[in-house]
Amino acid sequence: MNELQVVLSVLAALVALVLVWHIVRDEQVTNVGFFGLVALQVGLVVQLVWGVVRVADNHDGVSVAAYLAYLIGALLILPVAFLWSASEKSRSGTAVLLVGVLVLPVLFLRLHDLWSAHV
């Protein structure tokens, strides 16, 4: 994975730990968790721009449609998780956010795999 994706994966792991902490203690997500999610989302927007610039250049062998689909999919997941969890003020609402955060590194790996077909 590239540096941006490594940084975002580490950040995702940290935010996941904060969310697990809240789930275990059965308390609402605080500002730390919320701004962690915002930071992740900003990073994902940067990734989208960076990814689009990359596929606009030489991309022989890379499936552009799949690559863009993963970039955009990664951008949608946290906002959807946030909206879906908003009306669930319980551990389960926080767990929805946790699932969303944990899916991100999987998407980074898939993006990495897709790009590794580059010749």
Partner: peptide, 25 residues
């Protein structure tokens, strides 16, 4: 869709999105 069902529906949604994307591709 309440309580733990919130999590189940969300995971289902991700899988539905992934499967639809894959099928379309």
């Amino acid at each position: 869709s309440r309580g733990f069902g919130r999590v189940i529906v969300f995971v289902y949604g991700i899988l539905a999105f992934a499967a639809s994307g894959r099928a379309t591709f």
